[in-house]
Design a protein around this nucleic acid. Structure first.
Length: 220
DNA sequence: ACATTAAGCTGTA
DNA sequence: TACAGCTTAATGT
């Protein structure tokens, strides 16, 4: 088999626990596409499908009332988007766009439902991953309930710290995207990072952040 | 307190 | 040198 053909199925958490012959069957159902930076991967009213990221990254967003895009999440390699559309939830608002050159594999609604019926292990794995995704989403909406931008930014930096267990963390996206993520503007993110540094809570070099005062950040 | 606008700075192709 | 990403300052809500 062409090694490229393995990309999605072999190394993605959703599938990589299955036996080789089962992976092979899934592989035959998958549609591979490479998107360039800025290209739309799906939009409302598209055919329902599960989109799995093999390489690169996607942003998933919706449009607010005034037409501004509101970034909901970044989909990294190994994760997927569109699972809700596969069970009759119509996509009315969600868009996905490639942030860089991105390889995705797509599974049609009928094909994926057939797989879930045939592979109980896959169904369980799918539920587990979705439960984790839900938790993450709750944590993110929690950001937006905080009143002040520096609170949201501090909470975000603390999340990076918790994820890495390291006082040196690196912001993994463009500040423009972080701003959308936190519900503010790039300018304000820039100012607030400077503000936190002036308070001595962090030290910063570009996107490398060293957390100096964990307790003070948490108290915000 | 934050957004918007515009201008300037820096690294990179 | 042209461009993207970021920062800074002025001004508006």
């Amino acid at each position: 088999m062409d090694p490229k053909e393995h990309l999605c199925v072999r190394f993605v958490p959703l599938f990589n626990h299955l036996k080789i012959e089962d992976q092979r069957r899934i592989n035959s159902l998958v549609h591979r596409t490479t998107y360039q930076k800025g290209e739309t991967v799906f939009s409302p009213k598209d055919e329902p499908q599960l989109v799995i990221v093999a390489r690169g990254s996607l942003k998933v967003y919706q449009l607010s009332v005034n037409g501004k895009e509101q970034l909901l999440r970044i989909v990294e390699p190994g994760s997927y988007e569109g699972e809700n559309f596969l069970f009759g939830v119509e996509n009315q608002h969600l868009f996905a766009e490639a942030l860089e050159e991105t390889r995705v594999c797509a599974l049609k609604q009928d094909d994926f439902q057939g797989l879930l019926l045939d592979y109980p292990q896959l169904s369980l794995k799918f539920l587990t991953i979705n439960a984790q995704k839900n938790t993450q989403m709750q944590e993110q909406t929690q950001f937006l309930t905080m009143e002040k931008v520096e609170e949201r930014l501090a909470a975000y930096l603390l999340d990076l710290y918790k994820a890495s267990q390291h006082k040196q963390v690196k912001i993994p996206m463009k500040l423009k995207e972080l701003a959308a993520f936190l519900g503010t503007t790039p300018e304000t993110v820039s100012r607030k990072l400077k503000y936190l540094q002036e308070l001595g809570l962090i030290r910063r070099n570009k996107k490398e952040i060293e957390i100096l005062d964990l307790a003070a950040l948490e108290s915000l």
